[in-house]
């Protein structure tokens, strides 16, 4: 392990030594070689001026134009979308109004029909109940008559029964006058 490390350190040291000892470094930084300045600066001036002219005359106007056109198009489309949106809102409003009107109409028609039906029904009901009352009254009257009739015939029946019973019991004849008197008192006592 130790010899390995020594070996690696030796290699690193050797590389660094070779790099530092080379003639270029001994001559100093290449950047500080004043003789190379003028050709560099001459070409820097030429190339940068050319680049500036190419950029300001050709490249940048083109890009700027394309971006501007796109911006215009987007604005146009936005404006168009805005008018379409306004149209749609208007259409919706008129639709809403029409719907509300239709609803109100339907409601008034319904109320009218309802009122009409209700009044008709009320009239019919009143008619019916009047008729029913009438019928009831007639029935009651008839009932009273029947009852009276029944009560009247009750006396006759009672007289007949009494006669038959007394004949059976006594074997003799009893006068009609007596029987009706007795029945009359008995009926009166019952009532």
């Amino acid at each position: 392990m130790n010899t390995h490390r020594k070996h690696i350190l030796g290699v690193i040291g050797g590389v660094l030594a070779a790099q530092l000892a080379s003639p270029a470094l001994a001559a100093g930084l290449p950047q500080l070689d004043i003789a190379t300045f003028t050709p560099q600066l001459v070409w820097l001036a030429i190339t940068f001026v050319v680049l500036y002219l190419l950029m300001s005359r050709i490249a940048l106007p083109r890009i700027g134009q394309v971006i501007e056109e796109r911006q215009h198009r987007i604005e146009d489309n936005l404006a168009k979308a805005e008018t379409l949106r306004a149209d749609a809102a208007e259409a919706e409003a008129s639709y809403e109004a029409a719907l509300a009107k239709a609803r109100a109409d339907a409601h008034s028609v319904m109320v009218e029909v309802h009122d009409q039906v209700a009044s008709e029904a009320a009239a019919k009901l009143a008619d019916l109940s009047a008729k029913l009352d009438d019928n009831l009254k007639q029935a009651e009257d008839r009932l009273v008559q029947e009852k009276e009739k029944a009560l009247e015939s009750l006396g006759e029946i009672a007289t007949e029964v009494t006669r038959a019973l007394t004949e059976q019991l006594t074997g003799g004849d009893v006068s009609d006058k007596d029987i009706s008197k007795a029945v009359g008192t008995a009926l009166e006592a019952r009532q």
Partner: peptide
Amino acid sequence: NASLTNAGLFMVLTVAAVTLFL
């Protein structure tokens, strides 16, 4: 001394690359 050096060559290449790119 207006010699074309490796620096000058790469300046020219840079201008060409920028212009072509754009």
